[in-house]
């Protein structure tokens, strides 16, 4: 948080990047007795802050992320980025999905170049930028491979590079490591922190893994289902990289676990 000026009045940083205000989502065709997917969601994310949304499957965390991305419209309330209401996807919000969402007909490098498509760069500069990003995520030598010829971990590295290629101010990540095995997953967490430290972004990270959230985030929002609400928030003021066995991490893990039940 070194780049911020002025003393924050509350626990949050001075400049809110994302504000979620009174948000609710219910599906019209479902009968009214059903609890809403999301209800009374308020969340503020400061600039360059890393916030995780944690919850069981079905608690609406992915829906919330999709609404922040502008992919889904809320039933009530709104999402503001830099004080302006979000009306649709795009516009500096990069997203990494849980499933394989690379374009299978493009090579790794072409996928990343595709992300940089809307930036005012010459084709040569765009290619250089894509190559740099491929290097940044540790895939030098795999640039010409098609996604089908990459492992799951490598595919997600490309997906991160592609999202970064937009040069977004906000990076939205929907369980990006959810489909990976545990060892690859821990590697990817380190990798993400390394990338994040060189290209600071405001990150909203959805996960169902408490420890993943604790390793990565400045703040963890715990969500509960039926209706989907934010049940609690926890701030983690520990330097990174963190130790899984650190006393405070273990204690937080316990408290979050209790909030989930």
């Amino acid at each position: 948080m070194s780049g911020l000026t002025g003393a924050p009045a509350t626990g949050d940083a001075a400049r809110p990047k994302i504000e979620v205000v009174g948000l609710a989502k219910r599906y019209a065709d479902v009968d009214a007795a059903q609890p809403a997917v999301l209800e009374r969601i308020d969340l503020t994310v400061a600039e360059n802050e890393f916030v995780s949304l944690v919850g069981r499957s079905g608690c609406g965390k992915t829906t919330l992320l999709n609404i922040i991305a502008g992919l889904i419209a809320p039933s009530a309330g709104e999402v503001r980025v830099d004080g302006k209401a979000v009306t649709g996807p795009g516009g500096g919000k990069g997203m990494v999905f849980q499933q394989q969402a690379l374009f299978p007909w493009l090579t790794a490098l072409q996928n990343v170049e595709f992300g940089a498509r809307t930036r005012a760069l010459s084709p040569a500069a765009r290619r250089r930028e894509a190559e740099q990003l491929i290097d940044l995520v540790g895939l030098a030598g795999y640039a010409e491979r098609y996604p089908a010829a990459l492992s799951g971990g490598m595919q997600q590295r490309v997906a991160i590079a592609r999202a970064l290629a937009l040069d977004p101010q906000i990076l939205l990540m929907d369980e990006p490591f959810g489909a990976l095995d545990e060892i690859t997953r821990i590697d990817m967490q380190h990798e993400l922190l390394r990338v994040w430290s060189s290209r600071r972004k405001t990150v909203v990270f959805v996960t169902h893994s408490i420890s993943e959230a604790l390793m990565l985030s400045d703040r963890v929002a715990v969500m509960r289902a039926h209706p989907g609400v934010i049940a609690a928030e926890f701030r983690i003021d520990l330097p990174r990289p963190r130790q899984r066995t650190h006393a405070e991490i273990v204690a937080l893990h316990d408290r979050i676990w209790r909030h989930l039940n």
Partner: peptide, 15 residues
Amino acid sequence: IDPVLLRAGQTMDLT
């Protein structure tokens, strides 16, 4: 088409 591909396209300013 896998909807996630369309969504990915939308997050990259394609409409």
